[in-house]
Structure formats: C-alpha cells, structure tokens
C-alpha cells in the first residue's frame, strides 16, 4: 500500500493481529500505486532473518519484492560492524483469504481507552491457570470488572472509570463478554511497547484492540488485534 506496510497473522480463525508500519518509517519507500501488493510468508522465518545479527544489534534493512511468485529479498547490515552483510530470500505464497472481522452491521457498543503499562500489569496479575476471562461492562459503577474463574476460586478486578488507568470510557448498556485468556495474553507483548491502548467492543462481541507502538526516537507504528468472544454454552 502507498500508506505503508501491513503485516497480518491469524490464529485458529479466532484472533487476527496486524501491525502497520507507515511509509514514513522508511527512508525510502516505493510501491506500485495501482494495486495493493500482497503476499504470504512465514513469520517465523522473517523474524529469524531480521534478527540474524542478534536482537541487540541495530541493523539497516532493505526490502525488495518484484512480483507475484518472486521471493521477498532482505538485505541487512549491522550498524556497528561494517565488514558483514546478510541477504535473505524468503519464498512467498499467494495469500489465503483473510478473516474479515470488521463487521459493518455490528455497532460499537463500548469503548475503553487505557494506559497500557497499567493494563499490562493487571493482565500479568491474572491467575495463570485460568482459561476464560469474563468482562463486565456497565454504565454503572464499577463500570468495568474483569473476572476469572480458577479451580476453586473466582477473582474479580474492578476498574471504575474514575481510575487513573482509564483515560476514557463509554458504554451505553451493560454487557458481559467472555474471551479465551490465552487469546488475551497474545497481545501482552505488544502492550509492553505501547503507552495507550484502545479497546472497542462491537455488538457481536468481537473485541478490537488498537495500540500505538512507540520506541524512543522512532516514528510511530500501530498494531491491531481482533479477538472473537466465547459464546455461552
């Protein structure tokens, strides 16, 4: 896309995560304007290639892609050492159809803006052995309560909209949603990189989580997670 680069991964048709790298993150960015260039690659292989000089090393990166069927070419050069470079050819595939979780018929029923570090700490405190996270949202106090059920206990965290970690809260009608805790944990890593997080709940229960990823002296990148709710038994 002319706006930038978007990476999307899916897990079990229940979670879809995307990362956006806007074009202004690159010193040079050229793409065909008439079509969206799209292909599928192994994320594990891409991650290994990008870390070929170790995750602590800042490297310069050039990426090339010619046309459908041709590999994605990466050229990496570490900034601290000059006599070395790596080039990678990652084979590409035609993409499978991506889930479209953005349902235009479903309205947004609640929206929460939270401070990411506090939200991350809260999630990290949740009981590890639990499978399900229940979220109660209501216009009445305590506005948000997060409930987990363990083997012998039920624990509940209340988050009123007056709390320091809640920047904004809107919800018209009380609702209860349940998600796989395992799915929730998937976005914790991204949460650690961001300062603010937006949670949007649509009437079909799908949770959309939007994050702005920040790193000092770098331009902004964004990521999004769609998480499908658990249905009542």
């Amino acid at each position: 896309m002319t706006e930038g680069l978007k990476l999307t991964v899916e897990e079990g048709k229940c979670v879809q995560a995307s990362a956006y790298v806007p074009a202004d993150n690159f010193t040079e960015y050229h793409v065909r304007e008439d079509v969206d260039v799209m292909f599928k690659i192994s994320i594990a292989v891409l991650a290994e290639c990008l870390n070929i000089f170790g995750s602590a090393e800042e490297s310069s990166l050039k990426m090339y892609y010619r046309c459908e069927g041709s590999p994605l070419l990466l050229v990496l050069q570490p900034q601290s050492v000059h006599n070395v470079m790596t080039d990678c050819e990652i084979s590409t595939q035609t993409p499978d159809s991506l889930l479209d979780l953005r349902d235009s018929d479903a309205d947004e029923v609640a929206k929460l803006v939270l401070k990411a570090p506090a939200f991350l700490a809260l999630l990290a405190d949740l009981e590890r052995s639990c499978d399900v996270l229940e979220l109660n949202l209501s216009p009445e106090h305590p506005n948000v309560s997060i409930v987990t059920y363990g083997m012998q206990d039920r624990s509940c965290i209340d988050m009123p909209k007056s709390s320091d970690m809640v920047s904004s809260f809107s919800c018209e009608q009380a609702l209860t949603l349940r998600y796989q805790l395992h799915h929730i944990r998937l976005f914790m890593k991204a949460l650690a990189l961001s300062s603010k997080v937006v949670l949007r709940f649509s009437s079909n229960g799908v949770l959309l989580l939007q994050l702005k990823l920040e790193k000092e002296d770098q331009r902004q990148m964004f990521s999004e997670f769609y998480i499908v709710p658990l249905l009542d038994d």
């Binding site: 470079m85 790596t86 080039d87 990678c88 084979s91």
Partner: peptide
C-alpha cells in the same frame, strides 16, 4: 530451505 535462502557475508578477513 524450502522457505528461505539466507547468506551472511563477511569480507576483509
């Protein structure tokens, strides 16, 4: 491999 070809080159040794 089937999915990738990666070469790291050092020079000036």
């Amino acid at each position: 491999t089937d999915t990738a070809k990666v070469s790291t080159r050092f020079k000036g040794l």
